[in-house]
Design a protein around this nucleic acid. Structure first.
Lengths: 235, 235
DNA sequence: GCGCCTCGTATTGTTGACAATTCCCAAGGA
DNA sequence: TCCTTGGGAATTGTCAACAATACGAGGCGC
């Protein structure tokens, strides 16, 4: 990573330094990671005793983390019957991406309206980096995965709407990752996604808010269609 | 309420029969109500000991409820420093209504595409009831408040997207109510809102999805502007 | 053989006590 | 007068034991 790109990256990503994290917070993050990673498969039952022992905490903080995870929609809790990792079907995929397409479209529009020249340069640098990486290991799903999220995170941040950013990054992206993990990627898709990102970036940097919104919506809708196709193949 | 309107209402509102509610769940609802109602004013510190005593539970379930409330954005939690009722400024209002306008627009579009004739009749009956009520006690803020939410709830439900409905009803409306409660209403506004609802309803029932989306967006945006104006006056 | 009831077990829900951290305030010095 | 600094009280974070509920195996009657 070039040094100027590093400061660019810092411009786009914000570090929440939470200093003294409580046990419940830490466990929440660990379980979230485990679910999104696929380590805890969908519909897996999460016993409190087992989890508590695994993460080295008591059941008190653990239950708090579980409540928080329930709020994020990563687990479902049946009273007196424990919690299970959420299991999302095709309907959930469509509904999630419908919401995402609209909200990311909004984020894109706002970003285009509010972006500064410095931020535009940073966003372009981010994409340039993605292009280089992708050129090196072409077709590798995981990086494009990561890089794709980087871009969407950046747009969410550039919307300069805290609520929208929180909604997208905290509530929606983790669920999105669940699908990504399940189905993987079609060979040609990462390239196409990168092209989409380039065009969206261009529109945003030129403050063409209407075009930016439209392109982003289509981009997300295309991703949804691709995932659906993969899902049908896989099943 | 006429009997046919009653079955109409049942068509639009769904009862979640949660049988055996746990203490944490009950306390969560009670505190939520207290916050939305304004009983717990913004920025009020919520001590665990005090709350636990008030609701007759131990601090364990109470803390779980607090975590859940934090997830909904109704309280903010500083580690080792307790939780406070969220305090929303003008920026929060704009951001919240920006998201709402988009999401309710989406809901309206989906509702228009998917509404059945029976559901259309039910929605019209709901609005007719609102019209009657409003005719009786004209200008009364609270009812229109309640009625307004009824309508928006109905639209969210008619979108037939579970995720969207949950997002709107569970995550966004409670926050919206916070603002409503703070600022009250301008005298002429309820009437105007009702007119908006009528037109939106008509578009939805005729399956004119584009128009329905547009009207709903404008409706929400108008509400935002009104609240901003009230807020400036009040301050 | 099949269905139903009963009891035991495992798991969740809840509690009160203990540990750790923060905040407040008062005393001391520059 | 203001800033620093220490101590103490209050509050949050954590734990392990207790109570209540749901699940499943086994036995009984039909």
């Amino acid at each position: 990573m070039a040094p100027d790109d590093r400061v660019a990256a810092r411009l786009l990503t914000q570090q929440q330094s939470a200093e003294h994290k409580t046990h419940a917070d830490r466990v929440f993050e660990e379980i979230e990671r485990a679910i999104v990673t696929g380590e805890f498969a969908a519909d897996t039952r999460l016993g409190e005793e087992t989890l508590a022992e695994r993460f080295g905490v008591s059941r008190g903080p653990l239950r708090e983390a579980l409540r928080q995870l329930e709020g994020r929609g990563l687990v479902v809790r049946l009273p007196h019957a424990g919690v299970r990792v959420v299991s999302l079907g095709n309907t959930d995929l469509v509904e999630l991406y419908e919401v995402r397409a609209n909200l990311e479209g909004l984020a894109c529009r706002l970003a285009a309206q509010r972006i500064s020249t410095a931020e535009a340069a940073a966003l372009e640098a981010l994409l340039r980096r993605h292009g280089d990486e992708e050129g090196v290991r072409t077709g590798t799903a995981y990086f494009q995965e990561h890089g794709s999220f980087d871009f969407h995170f950046a747009i969410a941040r550039l919307s300069k709407s805290r609520r929208l950013e929180k909604l997208l990054c905290d509530d929606l992206y983790s669920l999105t990752r669940l699908f990504r993990f399940r189905t993987g990627h079609k060979p040609g898709r990462p390239r196409q996604a990168y092209e989409d990102h380039l065009r969206i970036c261009e529109a945003v940097c030129r403050s063409d808010s209407e075009l930016a919104e439209l392109l982003m919506r289509r981009h997300v809708e295309a991703a949804c269609r691709e995932l659906q196709a993969m899902d049908l193949e896989g099943a």
